[in-house]
């Protein structure tokens, strides 16, 4: 809790977009809700073990975009999508794709921390048990491991059987991250994971995200431009044109923030447009 200095630890590990094999490929993705188009023609290549920030004003379809990747969009009725998403070269938007496997491999962190109304331990073990880990020693080992990974273990080790709802907002969010990585996913989707948290918790989570990117590919939606700049290696700017979200610029974070090619991006990151 004492470490409040802003770090830029990711500067060194930034990956060039072209080199590594793409972990996630999105080709011409469009989403329609009812009859209204909300996203049009998004194409992105996301390399393995990188942090990609998605920025843009509210209502430009960033969250819908994320929920397409793990197919949580299926929960919203009357939504149609076209285009292609490949995760590890496997098509995601195929009606036949194995949603259980997909969601095991893609962890999701939501805007508001959403631990289940049960103990800290059970929160992590519920999904593990569901997906076949039965041995209680193994369960405890993984629980301990993921809690250490998110830096929560020392804070909660003496009350693992307490309700997760007794934790603070930042701790709850880290628990949700622990819950997601317990399933050993490859990709983490984060939908504004810090927007409901206080600055100290944000700092802890940002350091955590940076640390996690060594093992996972991370896609993070954020409204906090400074945050995007601090932690991400590449940035995608979504912008609503006539109410339809479009990807107006996508590139290395440094380039987006220092020499944006698009005039709208340049204005947006300087705070001229909101």
């Amino acid at each position: 809790m004492t470490n409040t200095t802003r770090q830029h630890p990711h500067q060194a590990t930034k990956l060039p977009l072209t080199e590594s094999k793409n972990h996630l490929e999105i080709k011409n993705l469009s989403i329609t809700y009812h009859t209204k188009k909300i996203l049009e023609n998004i194409s992105m290549m996301i390399p393995r073990h990188s942090i990609t920030a998605i920025i843009g004003p509210s209502g430009c379809g960033k969250s819908s975009f994320l929920s397409c990747i793990n197919r949580l969009i299926d929960l919203t009725p009357k939504t149609q999508f076209s285009g292609e998403i490949y995760f590890n070269q496997h098509p995601v938007l195929n009606t036949k794709s194995d949603l259980i496997l997909l969601r095991k491999k893609i962890g999701t962190i939501f805007q508001k921390p959403n631990p289940f109304p049960m103990s800290i331990k059970k929160n992590i073990q519920i999904a593990l048990k569901e997906h076949g880990t039965k041995d209680s020693k193994e369960l405890d080992r993984i629980t301990r491991q993921v809690l250490q990974d998110v830096g929560l273990y020392d804070e909660v080790s003496d009350r693992l059987n307490d309700s997760a709802l007794h934790l603070s907002g930042g701790q709850q969010q880290r628990l949700c991250i622990a819950r997601a990585i317990a399933l050993q996913p490859e990709l983490l989707l984060m939908d504004e994971p810090c927007s409901a948290l206080d600055p100290i918790s944000i700092n802890i989570i940002e350091n955590l995200i940076t640390r996690l990117s060594k093992q996972y590919t991370i896609l993070i939606v954020t409204h906090n431009l400074a945050q995007a700049r601090r932690i991400s290696s590449s940035t995608a700017v979504f912008w609503p044109t006539n109410g339809i979200g479009e990807l107006i610029e996508y590139g290395a974070t440094e380039q987006i923030f220092e020499q944006p090619k698009n005039q709208i991006t340049a204005d947006y990151i300087r705070g001229y447009r909101a």
Partner: peptide
């Protein structure tokens, strides 16, 4: 029951059975 629990449970690929007995009923 909040959308948050619904999404959370779905994102972890929990079955409807587990969702009902372990997430929804306690809520």
């Amino acid at each position: 029951i909040s959308k948050a629990h619904r999404q959370g449970s779905e994102a972890l690929a929990l079955s409807k059975f587990t969702t009902l007995f372990q997430v929804y009923l306690p809520c």
